[in-house]
């Protein structure tokens, strides 16, 4: 079942244009939303839930139009923009006792279970929690009101590798029973290699890829060769870098026929981001 559909989302700012963003997410999966800083990840997430007014486009959550059913659908959303970055001087229990009043499916037992599991002391102030703990508290709130779709903006940025790994394991656990889905934005590609089922890649306000991680990875290849081999293949390269020994570039797997003696290697998500970004930068200079 499709839990999230985004169709033709557009938002124009004087210096940035989010163009025709479309993707879907099935129930029971994790989608990583990647892109470099300023690519449009946060704008997309905010436009999806009307924090930013979209110029056009439709967002459907659980089969219902979000704009028409905003209040009802927000009951099923776990929203997090940059961890618990609010009411930092307040104690956890003070925030929770307010939050619980707004959600009809709030379950105090689930809340207490997660607090115990994450070792979160309700008498601590938000500012006393580490970044990782704040993300966990935010997830505990969303789990307690039984959110079905988690929209998380950069939940892992600023976390140390151990805390990040911990959060990614938790993501896996959340979707295990097949009733929830997670869309999380990040620019840390190793996060996605660990836990994402689907990848949506945005660059310069446009979606470059949105399909399963395996499909994305198998669609691209890294090509290495000598300087004199570059002219014959440069038209097929998405982006490339020259070095003292030759060049390294990214190409679509389907464009590789007749590549002869070039060295072909699998591409990582990071490679895909870096070389696609190079192409965009070159285009913007031209």
């Amino acid at each position: 079942m499709t839990i999230l559909t985004v169709e033709g989302l557009c938002k124009r700012y004087p210096s940035f244009y989010l163009r025709d963003v479309s993707f879907t997410l099935e129930t029971g999966y994790i989608m990583g939303f990647i892109g470099s800083n300023g690519a449009g990840k946060t704008t997309t997430l905010k436009s999806m839930i009307n924090l930013v007014h979209k110029d056009s486009g439709v967002v459907r959550i659980l089969g219902k139009d979000f704009t028409q059913n905003e209040i009802e659908l927000k009951q099923d959303l776990g929203i997090m923009f940059g961890g618990v970055d609010y009411y930092r001087k307040h104690k956890i229990y003070q925030i929770s006792r307010v939050v619980r009043r707004f959600f009809k499916n709030w379950d105090d037992d689930i809340y207490q279970t997660y607090l115990r599991r994450f070792s979160i002391d309700e008498n601590k102030r938000v500012e006393e929690l580490s970044n990782g703990m704040r993300v966990k508290y935010s997830l505990a709130l969303a789990m307690s009101h039984q959110a079905k779709l988690f929209l998380l903006d950069e939940p892992t940025s600023g976390l140390d590798p151990i805390a990040r790994d911990d959060i990614l394991d938790l993501f896996q656990e959340l979707i295990e029973d097949g009733s929830r889905s997670i869309l999380f934005s990040t620019h840390i590609t190793s996060d996605l290699e660990k836990c994402a089922d689907y990848i949506t890649y945005i660059e310069n306000g446009q979606i470059i890829e949105s399909r399963s991680k395996d499909d994305v990875l198998s669609a691209y290849r890294i090509v290495k060769g000598k300087q004199d081999q570059l002219p014959s293949i440069s038209s097929k390269l998405i982006g490339y870098k020259k070095n003292a020994f030759g060049f390294t570039g990214l190409t679509k797997n389907s464009d590789l026929q007749g590549s002869g003696s070039l060295l072909i290697e699998p591409a990582s998500l990071e490679d895909i981001m870096i070389y696609t970004r190079r192409k965009n930068d070159e285009e913007s200079i031209v």
Partner: peptide, 10 residues
Amino acid sequence: NDIGFSATLP
């Protein structure tokens, strides 16, 4: 960040 907090509520 009261508005950020309110944005997460239904």
